[in-house]
Design a protein around this nucleic acid. Structure first.
Lengths: 145, 145
DNA sequence: CTAAAACATGAACCTAACTTTAGGTCAAGA
DNA sequence: TCTTGACCTAAAGTTAGGTTCATGTTTTAG
């Protein structure tokens, strides 16, 4: 069993954040002794899942719902699995979006490299999507698709 | 030249958002006629860049700084390029993070699949990192690395 | 036994990025 | 002429996810 201070160090999270998560119902099984929180293995695994679901873009209130399911036994396995499938798809879509963003950023890097090397042209409008090197053309197409 | 309503449709952004961007200084070159905003090609390209930089995680006030640089001519090429490089790295790091999140989510999907198929075991603690199928072991290792 | 460190609470505060509201201007069509 | 629709502004409101504050209790080290 760990104190809130120990868990704060283990996960590199402010104590205030752990208390906030608790207040929001993210540790429905947490016990206390004289009012003091006792984090057990259940809460540590909960925190790992919280970090994962948060990174997937899920909101706190929905993470709370998941943690509630976890206290309700095998009847909720299907819902829990569906949630993870859903987050998996969301993350895949976000990665695809970021891939396009990356292409645009790489195009812009190339553009300014070229502009600096040339010592010419300015501004927001000055890139004509003709006659670019074909690898850059690919970045440009991807970024604007 | 386009009105704010036309641009709102073109970019599928609320009019209020466009006015907010303008108020925050994201269109430093925008002209007006009788107080009415006139969006030109400069502003459309600015919007494309705004969406890209926003998707990369950049804050509005930093996007404003970039737009300011764009009005200052070739002297700021180096800064602008550095910004894009910096965002490129940030996006690459974010994608690496998401890759790990994805591994964890896939592990959880596998876990609940198995639990449902087995019709056994409950809760947050019940996954021992021994004797998993080796492809699942890989997901698990990646997610916890 | 006592002082400091670590824990607790509720309430207020914070930030970013918008959105909504209330009130006003202006051009075009019936 | 009137009224409808698209535009304008400043200011207040909203939401998520915390953080800070004031105050009080419990644990721990000397």
């Amino acid at each position: 069993m760990y104190t809130i201070g120990q868990v704060s160090e283990m996960f590199d999270l402010p104590i205030s954040t752990l208390r906030y998560y608790d207040k929001e119902g993210l540790f429905p099984a947490m016990e206390r002794k004289n009012g003091i929180r006792k984090f057990g293995e259940t809460e540590l695994e909960a925190l790992r899942v919280i970090e994962c679901l948060k990174a997937s873009g899920l909101e706190i209130k929905d993470i709370k719902r998941f943690m509630q399911w976890c206290t309700e036994g095998p009847e909720t396995y299907a819902q829990r699995k569906e949630l993870f499938e859903c987050r998996r798809e969301a993350v895949q879509e976000e990665m695809a979006r970021l891939q396009k963003t990356l292409a645009m950023l790489e195009f812009k890097c190339w553009y300014y490299d070229t502009a600096i090397a040339d010592g010419s042209e300015d501004g927001l409008q000055s890139m004509m999507p003709d006659k670019l090197p074909s690898n850059v053309q690919k970045l440009y197409d991807l970024a604007h698709s």
